[in-house]
Computed example of a mutant assay.
Amino acid sequence: MALIPTLNTQRLRLRPMNLNDWPAYAAFMASDRCRHMGGPFAPDRAWGLFCADHAQWDFFGVGALMMEDHESGCCLGQVGINTGPLFPEHEIGWLVFLQAEGLGYAFEAASALRDWARDVRHLPSLVSYVHKDNTRSCRLAERLGAIPDKAATGHAPGDVVYRHFGPQAG
Rank of each mutant, 00 (worst) to 15 (best):
G80V: 08
Q10S: 12
G63P: 06
H54E: 10
S137N: 05
R121M: 15
A117D: 03
S128W: 05
G80H: 02
M29A: 12
D115A: 15
L126V: 08
S125F: 06
R33Q: 07
C74P: 01
L123T: 07
R143D: 12
A30K: 08
M1P: 04
S72W: 07
V62K: 00
I92D: 02
P167W: 13
P148A: 13
F97W: 05
V130H: 00
V161M: 00
G80D: 04
Q78L: 14
R136P: 05
V160E: 03
G73P: 01
A117C: 15
G63W: 02
Y25R: 00
W57Q: 08
A156M: 14
R114V: 13
E91G: 06
V160Y: 07
A46N: 00
P124F: 00
P23S: 12
D119P: 05
R139I: 05
G170N: 14
F97S: 01
P167D: 15
G154Q: 06
N82F: 04
H54M: 12
P124Q: 04
A24K: 07
L113P: 01
T83W: 11
G80F: 02
G39R: 00
A55S: 08
L76W: 03
V160T: 14
M66L: 11
N20I: 09
D149W: 03
F59P: 02
D159H: 11
F107C: 07
W116N: 10
A55F: 08
V160C: 04
E142W: 00
A42T: 07
G104L: 11
D149Y: 00
L98D: 15
G154T: 10
V120S: 13
Q10E: 15
W94C: 09
N82D: 03
P5Q: 02
T153K: 13
P88V: 09
V130R: 00
W47L: 14
S137P: 02
M1L: 06
Y105R: 13
G145M: 08
V96F: 02
A112K: 11
F50M: 01
Y162W: 05
L113F: 01
I147Y: 14
G104P: 13
C51E: 14
L140N: 01
R121A: 15
V161K: 01
V120W: 12
D133T: 09
L98E: 15
T135C: 09
A141S: 06
I81M: 00
R139G: 09
W47C: 04
A30N: 11
P157Y: 08
A106C: 09
G38P: 04
L144V: 08
T153L: 14
R139Y: 09
H155I: 11
L95P: 02
R136Q: 13
R15N: 05
R121F: 07
L7W: 07
P5L: 07
R13G: 03
L3S: 12
V161C: 06
G145R: 08
W47E: 09
S128P: 13
V120G: 06
V160F: 09
A100P: 06
F107E: 08
N18Q: 11
L123P: 05
L49I: 15
S72K: 04
M29N: 10
D149I: 01
N20G: 09
L3H: 10
H54L: 11
E68C: 07
F97C: 04
A109Y: 04
S125T: 07
